[in-house]
Every structure is written in structure tokens, then in C-alpha cells.
């Protein structure tokens, strides 16, 4: 992003979002599979699943688009 060969900040953001996406989506899927849903309001909407998936998709997009050496 600075016009040189350094890794763009967007790549770091991609890494972070991907890791968080995997963690949160993984937990959400575990909730779905086991039925052990967290005691929060609107738990039936399974926010960890779709929010985690969204983070993962965004993260992967940034990872690929701004990967070093591209």
C-alpha cells in the first residue's frame, strides 16, 4: 500500500479476519451440531455462524487480493 514491496496492511487485516472467522464460525457450527446454544438473546438466529462466515469470507478476500508478491 505504500508503493514498495512491503506487505500491505490489508493483508494483515485479511489474516486477522480469517482467523477470527474460523474461530467464531467453528464455535457457531459446534453450537448448531450439539444444540448447546449460548444463553443470549436471539440465540436462535445463530449469529456466530453467519457473522463468523462473513468475517471468513471478507478475510479470505483480503488475503487473496493483497497477498505478498502479487
Amino acid at each position: 500500500m505504500t508503493g514498495t514491496r512491503e506487505i500491505p496492511i490489508w493483508f494483515f487485516i485479511g489474516v486477522l479476519l480469517s482467523v477470527y472467522g474460523v474461530m467464531i464460525l467453528g464455535y457457531g457450527l459446534w453450537e448448531l451440531a450439539t444444540g448447546h446454544v449460548a444463553n443470549v438473546v436471539l440465540a436462535h438466529l445463530h449469529a456466530p455462524v453467519w457473522w463468523g462466515a462473513l468475517m471468513l469470507v471478507l478475510g479470505l478476500f483480503y488475503l487473496v487480493k493483497f497477498r505478498p508478491g502479487r
Binding site: 477470527y20 474461530m23 467464531i24 464455535y27 457457531g28 453450537e31 446454544v37 449460548a38 444463553n39 443470549v40 438473546v41 436471539l42 440465540a43 449469529a47 456466530p48 457473522w51 463468523g52
Partner: peptide, 12 residues
Amino acid sequence: LVRYCGPGLLGL
């Protein structure tokens, strides 16, 4: 946050 966010999302 506590009202809507379970494990993982609360940490986020």
C-alpha cells in the same frame, strides 16, 4: 454485548 454475544463474539 453480554445480551447478544455468546462465546467468541463477546471476546470480539
